[in-house]
Design a protein around this nucleic acid. Structure first.
Lengths: 201, 201
DNA sequence: GTCTATACACAGATAGAC
DNA sequence: GTCTATCTGTGTATAGAC
């Protein structure tokens, strides 16, 4: 809304804050998830940060959004529907390397249950999109006969999302849980043993 | 550790606090989950509460434990292994009536990822026990031929737990999600369509 | 052993100066 | 756009009354 220079500087500053925040939280875990910690990391005061984002919860909502954005560029962009399941598995495996962000995501997901929470719409939309991807992949696999299970794709999509989220919680409690291995085994044993055909990445 | 009267009074007071706390949180949701709110509900000062429990996190750990205890009396006590899956479904359906407690549980589950958190061992133990119940039920069903799927019971138990936790998160975000229906459909479609045989409660 | 009163530490939010 | 100062709320620690 403002002429070039100033506006762009504001956006750039926001980006810088968000990137540094992802960094700090990834490294320090949820302990690094206070306004003050992030402020220190970008050499600003807490008030300076909140000038850009309004409130703490809005700041953290933007952090989540930013991570999704970065993830999407790396993994799922432009992949055909059939491969979205695989892309998701890759994502899962990679995310498992950054416990702090998973903690943040899980914590925010709970808080966002409140319709008034700034992240509420983000999580609703994210869930819808995630399941739509699964649904389409399932449909394609069913129609091509590579998936013998003929259950309602919408329901299966919900289940897959649930398994993914649920395994993350188990993994937070005990990092020795191999999420990707369980997901893969599940696809192969229950869904018709054909997801491995997609493996080429 | 102390002679009768006094000791019992202490225990009784703790029980009273825990019961009231479950009440308040169930009614007011996570907003009622501050030491002050609970203190008000039992007509005590915050310090009075903490005298009995030490810290806030320990208090809330005991609250979780208390709820499990009450749940167990109501549903799973004495049920044969084969029916534990059904008992769990019943529990799921009943819990869905008390959003505040599910929020509390989910939030604590995330915080308990930290091995130093007072609820860490509670959640670890709870997970082990939950999965052990599923595992035995699965084994029985497999051996009696009522479950055609021959995947590793331990892995399947993890998946079922994950679906259950994951669906709760979806439900928190959108209460129109019918957790029990999805769980039931999942058992019937993927696990061999035999869980309904157990339905008699 | 039980609890109140009080003091303290800290986080997030807000107002106003620069 | 950023800081300092301030206010509020919330959890925690301690002293001492009963």
């Amino acid at each position: 809304m403002k002429p070039g220079g100033t506006y762009l500087k504001g956006v750039a500053k926001r980006e810088e804050i968000l990137k540094k925040a992802l960094d700090v939280i990834g490294r320090e875990g949820i302990r690094g998830a206070s306004v003050k910690e992030i402020a220190d990391a970008v050499h600003l005061s807490p008030a300076g940060i909140l000038h850009h984002f309004g409130t703490k919860e809005e700041l953290f909502t933007e952090i989540l959004r930013k991570r999704d954005e970065l993830d999407q560029e790396l993994f799922t962009d432009g992949a055909p529907a059939e491969q979205s399941a695989l892309a998701y598995l890759n994502l899962t495996q990679r995310n498992a390397q950054v416990p702090g962000l998973i903690e943040l995501f899980s914590e925010m997901a709970v808080k966002a249950a409140d319709p008034q929470h700034p992240a509420h719409n983000f999580f609703v939309k994210r869930g819808v999109e995630t399941r739509a991807g699964f649904e389409e992949a399932i449909r394609v696999l069913q129609e091509s006969g590579r998936l013998q299970l003929h259950s309602d794709p919408a329901m299966l999509a919900r289940v897959i999302q649930a398994v993914s989220d649920g395994l993350q919680m188990q993994w937070l409690l005990d990092p020795s849980v191999d999420m990707a291995a369980i997901m893969t085994a599940l696809f192969e044993d229950c869904l018709g043993g054909s997801i491995s055909e997609l493996h080429d990445a």
